[in-house]
Simulated scan of single mutants.
Amino acid sequence: MDLRIFTEPQQGASYETLLRVARAAEQLGYDGFFRSDHYLRMGDGDGLPGPTDAWITLAGLARETERIRLGTLMTAATFRLPGVLAIQVAQVDAMSGGRVELGLGAGWFGEEHAAYGIPFPERRIDRLEEQLAVVTGLWETELGDTFDFEGTYYRLKDSPALPKPVQQRIPVLLGGMGPRRTPALAARYAAEFNAPFASVEETGAQFARVRAAAEERGRPAHDLVYSNALVVCVGRDDAEVARRAAAVGREVDELKANGLAGTPSEVVDRIGRYQEVGSRRIYLQVLDLDDLDHLELVATHVKPQLG
């Protein structure tokens, strides 16, 4: 079971804060450091010092880390034209020495689009499908050839399809709980499918849909990595769990019901239930980015107990 750190910087985090967390995650042996791609805070709080851009952040981290995988959960397809996104991600892949992964979603948070003047079109899942075709098509075009695409929303002609990523194939992550289009897109384009903030039962059902969609395309279901994103709140005892929950304004019982909360043994058991339905990677959503002791506790008391 891989463990990756997942952050939500729009809630309030500078680049320096994210760098500290990424370096700590790398030193503690986590497999990856991922961040959301949002420009507006959600819920309570002031969101200070303000949003950071996902791919600018990852470009910086690419030069200031050495081993850890870097990526997004999820880049919004509404934020960037697909040709530009393909260039950005390939460049950051080169800057990292081939450690980048692209999580790509349709975009859903209308308020942030309004706040920053970003168009929020209808039929976003259709646009996402074309974005996936363009981004992967550009990367896969042979050196010296050109790429053309004629879609409803995007048209490319005689693109040199440069630059090329360092990795032979940058892993593309798709996720969500849509019952039909989401599994179909994952079966066609994804190296990994992520079930975000879902129960064990919901996860198992969605993984089954993705496996069925993959097999329908003639692709082995085990060709994909199956993963979850879940809030983490671990303490050495009940008092420490309660302290960490209070620090992020959450209730312990709610976190235990909807995330990974409790003592190390409780969290190991909870992860085991996700593992039973096919999850092989967990993105630990860390809400208090100043609490690096939390990362160390999980690395030393949870991670070694996982298969």
Rank of each mutant, 00 (worst) to 15 (best):
H301Q: 15
L70K: 01
Y153K: 13
A114T: 11
R244N: 12
A59Y: 03
E251R: 15
L173P: 03
I68H: 00
L19Q: 08
T17S: 10
H38T: 01
I87R: 15
G32P: 00
T65Y: 00
P49A: 05
L70R: 00
L297R: 08
G259R: 08
S36M: 04
V225M: 03
L174T: 05
S265P: 11
D2M: 00
P9E: 02
Y189A: 03
Y283D: 11
E111P: 14
T52S: 02
A245M: 08
Q131K: 08
G83S: 14
L143V: 14
D288R: 06
V252W: 12
A161S: 13
W55H: 05
F147R: 03
F33N: 00
V234T: 05
E66N: 04
T7I: 06
R273E: 15
A161D: 10
R188L: 07
A261N: 13
A214M: 14
E251Y: 13
S96C: 00
V84F: 11
R270D: 13
P160D: 09
L230D: 03
Q11S: 11
L61Q: 00
E122S: 14
R280V: 03
D237C: 05
A247C: 12
Y39V: 06
D158F: 13
V302Q: 08
E296P: 03
R236L: 14
R41W: 11
H38A: 02
G178S: 11
R123H: 14
D44R: 15
S279R: 04
Y226P: 02
L70M: 00
E150C: 11
Y154Q: 12
R169M: 01
G103Y: 03
T182A: 12
G97W: 00
H38F: 02
P119M: 06
E111A: 15
G45P: 07
P119F: 09
D293Q: 12
W108V: 12
T78E: 12
S227V: 03
F79S: 06
A257F: 13
F193R: 07
P171A: 05
R217E: 15
D158P: 14
V232N: 07
T182F: 10
G71V: 03
A90P: 02
N228L: 04
F79R: 09
G117C: 02
R127P: 04
A13C: 10
C233P: 04
P82V: 11
A212C: 10
R243C: 10
R181D: 10
R124K: 13
T263P: 13
E266H: 11
V89Q: 05
G71M: 02
L18I: 06
V166W: 02
Y189P: 07
F193A: 05
K164D: 02
L260Y: 12
Q88H: 06
V134A: 05
P304N: 10
P304W: 10
L102F: 04
A212Y: 10
G107W: 06
P9D: 02
P82S: 10
A106C: 03
A246E: 15
H113W: 10
